[in-house]
Nucleic acid binder design. Structure first.
Lengths: 87, 87
DNA sequence: TAGATATTTAGAATATCGTCTAATTATCTA
DNA sequence: TAGATAATTAGACGATATTCTAAATATCTA
């Protein structure tokens, strides 16, 4: 849970998630959406990957990233447990 | 949204929310649940308050804190929008 | 009113985080 | 195979965060 909240606590990383909502993208295509070096974006992708928020799949030279929505269920349950509701 | 995610990105603050789930507590009562100075807890309470995650009410010498669950709705909607579901 | 209690604020020390440049690794293709 | 392209890793730097001690503020009560 720690890694999840840390991963979400950055506007760039949240924007990456938002972009991936529309379609899977390669690292390079993600970089194009930001005014930031590829190294920085790569770092953010690593954080998202370690929090299981995205999946990475290498295809040739490129690495394609996609949203992994399964983790959001944990987050939703955490929220509802605070709200004191069942689900 | 920025402040919300930042506020949630700390184990101490998340534990405070969890403690407040059971009952409203004064700042001092919250401090007792941690091995940390009152000043540090006060700082965390300020962060939570600024993110609208808790409400503070002064009663005499004491300040009582309570969960403000209304903000969680924003978070839930943010998650569902990423998951691509209506609600 | 004086002292005690509850809480917050100020300021400093240390750790963590986000970003960069430069170098490295892996893959493709002429 | 050599060079080009895609992406990551390493290391450094500045900014931000967390925690502490000490001091300040507000309220209660003897």
């Amino acid at each position: 849970m720690n890694k999840l909240f840390k991963a979400l606590d950055d506007p760039t990383r949240r924007k990456i998630l938002d972009i991936l909502k529309k379609s899977d993208l390669s690292a390079g295509e993600i970089v194009q959406q930001f005014s930031m070096t590829a190294a920085s974006i790569s770092h953010h992708l690593t954080v998202l990957k370690n929090a299981d928020l995205v999946l990475a799949e290498k295809r040739g030279q490129q690495v394609f990233y996609s949203l992994n929505t399964t983790v959001f269920q944990d987050l939703i349950e955490w929220i509802y447990s605070l709200k004191g509701e069942e689900k």
